[in-house]
Amino acid sequence: MSQTKVLLLDGGMRKNGTSSSLAKTIKRQVENKGQTAEITRLVEYFDGKHMISELKTILNKSDIIGIIAPCYVNTFPYADIWCLEQLICGYQKEWQGKMLFAVAQGGMPDLKVHQSILHVSEHFAEETEMKWAGGLIIGMAPLIDGAPLENCGFIGRRLVKNMDRMVDRLLDFGHIPSALQNKITIDIPKILNYPLAFFLNYIVKSSLKKGGAGDPYHKPYCS
């Protein structure tokens, strides 16, 4: 039997950011199940490091395509949308019936603020006649901040376990069950957002100190 080929489109702008860490985990999980996976960074096509035609070629050769992207102002970053637009320009019939899934991750714990990434991916699948396999949304991504998931304690372990189930489902060419989303969602009571904000502000203040910036409240564009 021929191997299933999974293509993972890393939509992160940082080379070793959280999108990249999630993509690496999925790649490993696919390979552990005896199939092949390849990661390619979308921003490198935007930057002209590779040609979009090369992306189309690897897409043609893949059976399952996954987009793993950070949430920028509620949806995909600019460079990722640009790549999707370029892909649709040369839409190829060969993509028909391939499976597409997405993993969205962002800073805020409220998952609905990242929902557009899954919507956009689903509509992209419709327009290219790929089969939409669903996706997962991961909030509070700064807690991962590009680290290997295995080093992220309870949160990381929970993600690894449920992403592995997601991979099982995808390799069976099935839809990602919504129950998996519930399993990775940390439903924190709203009241806990106060200590969370305190903790996140502590991290921000430490990095500001390290960066040596001046006044963090500076208003460069005030007339």
Binding site: F76, A79, I81, E85, H119, V120, H123, E127
Partner: peptide, 8 residues
């Protein structure tokens, strides 16, 4: 409207 969102 681009894939149900904004264009690049």
């Amino acid at each position: 409207i681009r894939f149900g969102g904004f264009n690049s």
